[in-house]
Design a protein around this nucleic acid. Structure first.
Lengths: 217, 217
DNA sequence: CCAATATATGACTATCAGTCATTAAAAAAA
DNA sequence: TTTTTTTAATGACTGATAGTCATATATTGG
């Protein structure tokens, strides 16, 4: 029956319209200062209707994150394939993630500010969904590390998965510092830009197999 | 007039009693699942009375964090003074911070889960208070880095303040991963304990002036 | 055209942070 | 000691808002 298909498509489209509106509002005012009523107004629907498409306000948040992660994973896959050695791939990952995060600063602010609390109370269904999404790009990092160990460009005295996790965590937190860290920049006389810019230099010796060779710059 | 002094002392004491109760509840149920009413019940006061001692629920949170940071800073000062070189002091900092955080896991969970959101909306008064507190230990880290650069144990190609900030951020985030990271451990087959335990090894080459000498272990 | 099904709605409930008029207790003055 | 003034404590109330649900509307298939 073709009707069911069409309805399915329409439902997806409307979900996206709702997500666009919610995203816009969350970015400008923060997750907790936007009410479901407000989002409903923006898309010209009743509040109750939103709950036909998303089971909770938290779910709306995760759907927004998920869209971004998917987009991110796609570009990352393409970019990293351009690196020759594992080490080069990791460098690309770091540099490009910085660029991407700066282009999506509003998204990043929202994610670091509200993510921890929302992930802490995430329900099983959303957790499964988010894990599935993250599975699209996390293995990329680990594969690059493994490749680098094999080709001799990356240090081999650490479990590759572990090294991948450190890199992921550090890059993420440098690019999107949580608000308490951000407050510290002014006080300590370091600009956020410099903090981000110098990251590759800081990390290099902790990643390279032969820092004296790979990290001259 | 002695009365005023006594009253002042009594007020401080009661503040602490309230903080103890709030802390206990926040640790066990999370900041947002504890109501002011509940805290008031616990200390056998009316809800309104709490507001004579703390201006908001958020302020209660910051007062709890602040108590911990002060305690932390005191012990840190003492521990770090035992290191010979700057590099040793940094090692002590990292190792001891890990130990401390593990001993205060419930505090750390609360801080990483709710901190970002609360710091984002912190008011000027609490911000000043928190900054003042953090000024007690942040300079310790930077001083150790500077000392290490001078005595040749720490790399000298990065701004010391910047290096201090990276170290602080990384150690903090490894020890207290935010909930979305924590979810990843199981999936990726790395235990949290290993993640924490291997940190010094991972970081060493990014800190030492001569990794081949300082990082053999 | 008419049942049956799917979609939309906003009034309603429950929860909770923060306020404030009122009461109670303590301190100061008489 | 008694009265006045100051300080502390209280909980009913307000406003905000996530999520529900009975009702209404629209769409579909027969």
């Amino acid at each position: 029956m073709a009707t069911a298909d069409r309805k399915e498509r329409e439902k997806e489209q409307r979900k996206n319209v709702i997500l666009d509106a919610a995203e816009k509002l969350f970015f400008s005012k923060g997750f907790d200062s936007v009410s479901m009523e407000e989002i409903a107004k923006e898309v010209e629907l009743g509040k109750g209707t939103l709950y036909l498409y998303f089971k909770s306000k938290d779910s709306l948040f995760f759907a927004i994150i998920s869209r971004k992660w998917i987009e991110f994973g796609k570009i990352l896959t393409e970019k990293m394939s351009q690196g020759k050695t594992g080490f080069e791939k990791i460098q690309i990952l770091i540099r490009w993630y910085i660029e991407y995060a700066q282009k999506n600063a509003d998204y990043n602010d929202m994610a670091t500010t509200f993510g921890p609390q929302l992930f802490q109370r995430i329900d099983a269904e959303d957790a499964r969904m988010m894990m599935e999404v993250s599975m699209k790009y996390i293995p990329l990092v680990h594969a690059a590390v493994r490749e680098g160990i094999e080709d001799g460009s990356v240090r081999n005295d650490l479990d590759p998965t572990l090294l991948g996790m450190y890199l992921q965590m550090i890059t993420f937190n440098v690019v999107s510092p949580d608000p308490s860290m951000k407050n510290g920049f002014a006080t300590q006389g370091i600009s956020y830009d410099k903090y981000v810019e110098m990251l590759p230099k800081f990390l290099c010796p902790a990643v390279a197999r032969f820092p004296e060779k790979e990290c001259d710059n």
